[in-house]
Design a protein around this nucleic acid. Structure first.
Lengths: 332, 332
DNA sequence: CTGTTAGCGCATTCAC
DNA sequence: GTGAATGCGCTAACAG
């Protein structure tokens, strides 16, 4: 591996000149600039990240704590992670992956100066990692919205507004009793904020619009879905519309309804809250409020970088939902 | 942040003594050892990873190139990644995440000395990244088995043997015509090695056991499944058993078969090739050859670390499948 | 516009 | 068993 010294010698300039050509932190004559770049190319030089980190106090690495468990919306997590990595690259940053349960990892990578900033996904309402993270004093962004951000920046989809948008759409279609099938009970129990907020938004919107509501948590299995549908559609006051906030459940839904003799949307309107590709994957594409996982991931990276490079203040950013009507909702 | 110098001063010893206490590379009297450890604790010292990397030529980071796309078995990928990160930590390594399409990333992190070794997932039969990776000269392990490993270590589940095991099981239950529903066409077209090998193993095993076979690639959507089932079950010579190698499809299968009036296993036996948790998630747990994603991820990390720390030779390791009979297969 | 130089924090080779 | 000294490769302040 060639070093900067080798490059300097080959280009007939001093070491610092090479450094400044690379960083652009001072003006260099075009002539010597070219000479240096040529030497870099010829020697196939690239800077040693450790040395750079040592001298500059910057690692060019972001830490990302992601839930690598099976019990979450795996495909959504994937999209977040992909967006984070891709966006980080546009800022010349790499991404170090920490698992959700490795709380000590936050402190470790920070105190070892391995990362310049931290991102944390799958936030719970009163997440114990947050005070810990806040105390580290590194730029950090929560992907999710806890009860108390402890002075950290947050970014998330506005799940409450998503539910409201869905309810408003259905209400305008004259539905007067709407069901909500949401995240698994486990997500509710640990107060994953997306689950809580979507439910809350739904309940409030129904109350405001004066429509009846029934809520069920539901795992992504056929038996669980059957039970949830029984609860929502059974009884003497069945709903005529459904809001579904559970990506893994969507593929199971068409057949479950078909086997009850219910047609979509003639007998039952359905609005999905899900990533767009999931909403579009069905035989009959779902009317949906789409979760822009990519945008959120990108925003999160932009926000850490902002805090890293400038003195922009802490911010809490909620991404506004929008509904696209497709083939699964109609007026009654 | 405290430095090693601070620790040395606080403990009343020299800098090198602290270093040796940490590395254990030479014997230190228990007395001074304790003094040093105490100082470390008191100052909350931890070594600067950049400085360590610079001096030791080791970053304690592994690069992992993972497919963060929606078109693969997302949950399986997740399990691999989780296993890799967890295992890496037991070797005191962290994991840097690279996306599948960022071929340049391999060279970048290598030439910048950011990583000590590389892992690559989702290998294709003639993957263009492999010669590139081989040329880098870093310890590397492929999670998957290409046509030509270019002298790199490989580890993977023995998908061919998995199919054979499934066929043997069904053959012993007197099934004489078996269907195979596999990965999506897209996976076949790019020759993802797991897809190719599972198919090949199936075809060969059927021939060897003298049972009839029908193969279909299938996306994880209801229409695609319907079509695949038509092909396999329709005609005047329907199969009496099915091998399914497609995690995302499994949740859709019970209803698809039920709606055809087929009972499992009375009318149709089914063997899944899938991670155990997926196989167990169904209302009626699948008889399955389980894909031990965790074991494979762990093995991959162990193999890079072997090549990093010792001169163990390159190896190709295939993990032997085993079948667990549950409620979805029976004799005819 | 360019060169010289002093660290950044740690691992390790010598000397004792 | 311990300490002093050197260098890893780079950044940035200082000096022209």
């Amino acid at each position: 591996m060639a070093t900067m010294n080798d490059v300097a010698r080959a280009a007939g300039v001093s070491l610092s000149t090479v450094s400044y050509v690379l960083s652009g932190k001072r003006t260099i004559s075009e002539e010597t600039r070219q000479a240096v770049l040529e030497a870099i190319r010829k020697l196939n030089y690239s800077p040693h990240s450790g040395a750079r980190a040592l001298a500059s106090n910057r690692s060019n690495v972001l830490g990302l704590m992601a839930p690598l468990r099976a019990d979450v919306n795996v495909s959504v997590v994937m999209q977040f992670v992909a967006a984070v990595v891709t966006t980080a690259r546009t800022f010349d940053q790499d991404v170090l992956l920490l698992t959700q349960d490795d709380a000590g990892g936050l402190e470790r990578v920070t105190s070892q100066s391995m990362v310049d900033g931290l991102l944390m996904m799958d936030i719970e309402a009163r997440d114990s990692r947050i005070p810990l993270l806040a105390r580290l004093g590194k730029p950090a962004v929560l992907i999710g919205l806890p009860d108390d951000p402890h002075g950290l920046s947050c970014v998330d989809f506005d799940f409450a507004a998503a539910s409201r948008t869905a309810v408003r759409h259905l209400s305008e279609l004259n539905h007067i009793r709407i069901g909500f099938i949401g995240s698994p009970p486990a997500s509710l129990e640990r107060h994953a904020t997306y689950a809580d907020r979507a439910r809350k938004g739904f309940t409030e919107a129904c109350a405001a619009a004066d429509v009846g509501s029934v809520l069920r948590a539901c795992e992504a299995t056929v038996p669980a879905l059957t039970e949830a549908l029984d609860a929502v559609l059974g009884g003497d006051d069945p709903v005529t519309a459904l809001v579904v906030h559970n990506e893994a459940l969507l593929p199971l839904l068409p057949q479950a309804l078909a086997s009850r003799g219910l047609r979509i949307p003639e007998d039952l309107s359905v609005v999905a809250i899900a990533p767009e590709d999931v909403a579009l994957a069905a035989a009959k594409p779902w009317t949906a409020v789409s979760i822009p996982a990519h945008d959120i991931g990108r925003a999160a990276v932009e926000m850490v970088m902002d805090r890293l490079n400038s003195d922009k203040p802490v911010e809490v950013r909620l991404i506004v939902p929008s509904l696209v009507q497709r083939e699964t909702t109609s007026a009654r």
